[in-house]
């Protein structure tokens, strides 16, 4: 008998409700994926306002939930379990999702599972490409995270093997976009500008690639500074900034380091599958270079479609389904949000 799992996501700007069907053979089918974003509200205030974020989640939660059930053609009474992002994320934002999920679980009399947002970004791939092989390697790249993870069991065993020591990759995109006068968030406009540029025009540094640097850690702060210096130098000489070339050269440096380290980590650990997820996974140069290097190394590459890569409730429902299928114990109704939840804690 298949089971319906509802997923609740509210760790940052997106309020997401997902519904999936967990089949008896362990496969997970996507039924609904509804998202409301407070990004526009934040743009009006010129930045993220924590109270606005929490309030936006609060206002979006019930309508988004209703839309998800309508889309799936289900009643709330069809739900067998509820999964919710317990962390990491913004404390006030997480709290709204956790409180809503508790209320739904208590009202429906179904078990509640507090799960990890980062693991959700990996689990979402099973909605598109089926079960994950064990082990596999995941490269998680977004505005807030840049991590290389070994996944032995999506429902229970995830180990960090590298992460950024300073800025996240997406953050570097946002800051370089600002330097170049491009809009926020910086990923899409830089990707677009780069298409007309020469990726070899400027030799920007590849962070953390020296012989004494940690093999699988990342650093994007030096790259960001190098771009700032280059732009300031050109401005000081009264030159027009070749935005396309700067964007292409910057993007090349990011994609080069991310893919080189991911492929090396997979090769050295004898892992045959790489999953790239998170908002930056939608970047065209990152996916094309990853495809090329994975093919050369004989590694299977899996990248969920862009809609699944950004924050959503379907990823939490998918992870919840795997946690339920693995027979993990549900969370207590005392569950609290943990803004700094480590990726090793897949469910709490």
């Amino acid at each position: 008998m298949s089971r319906i799992i509802m997923g609740v996501e509210s760790s940052c700007d997106e309020t997401g409700i997902g519904l999936v069907r967990l089949h008896d053979d362990g496969t997970v089918e996507l039924l609904a994926d509804e998202v409301a974003s407070s990004v526009e509200q934040h743009a009006r205030f010129g930045g993220v306002v924590p109270e606005v974020a929490s309030r936006a989640h609060l206002e979006a939660m019930v309508p988004t939930t209703r839309r998800a059930f309508t889309t799936a053609g289900l009643e709330m009474s069809d739900v067998d379990a509820i999964a919710v992002t317990a962390g990491p994320g913004l404390a006030g934002a997480l709290l709204v999702g956790v409180s809503a999920a508790k209320a739904y679980a208590a009202a429906l009399g179904v078990p509640l599972y507090g799960v990890n947002h980062l693991a959700g970004h990996i689990a979402v791939d099973t909605l598109q490409h089926g079960p994950l092989p064990s082990p596999c390697l995941a490269l998680l790249v977004s505005g807030g995270h840049t991590q290389l993870l070994r996944v032995d069991d999506i429902a229970g065993k995830i180990t960090e093997i590298g992460s950024t020591v300073d800025d996240a990759a997406g953050e570097a995109y946002d800051k370089v976009a600002r330097l170049l006068g491009l809009p926020y968030p910086g990923g899409p406009p830089i990707d677009k500008a780069a298409k007309a540029g020469d990726p070899q025009a400027i030799a920007f540094p590849r962070g953390m690639t020296g012989p004494r640097d940690a093999k699988f850690d990342f650093s994007f702060s030096g790259l960001k500074t190098a771009v700032a210096r280059w732009v300031e130098g050109a401005q000081a000489r009264g030159e027009e900034i070749p935005v396309a070339d700067v964007a292409a050269s910057f993007q090349e440096a990011v994609a080069d380091v991310l893919t080189a380290k991911a492929v090396r980590a997979a090769t050295e650990s004898g892992i045959g599958t790489l999953v790239i997820s998170g908002g930056v996974a939608a970047n065209s140069r990152l996916s094309s270079l990853a495809a090329q290097r994975c093919a050369e190394a004989g590694i299977e590459l899996r990248v969920p479609r862009p809609r699944l890569c950004t924050d959503n409730g379907a990823m939490i429902a998918a992870l919840g389904a795997h946690v339920v299928a693995a027979g993990c114990a549900p969370s207590s109704l005392d569950l609290s949000a943990n803004p700094a939840l480590p990726v090793s804690a897949v469910s709490v």
Binding site: C12, P88, G89, L90, G144, H145, T164, V165, A168, S221
Partner: peptide
């Protein structure tokens, strides 16, 4: 570990 808090504020 100290890293940029830009995203998490």
């Amino acid at each position: 570990r100290v890293s940029s808090p830009t995203f998490v504020l």
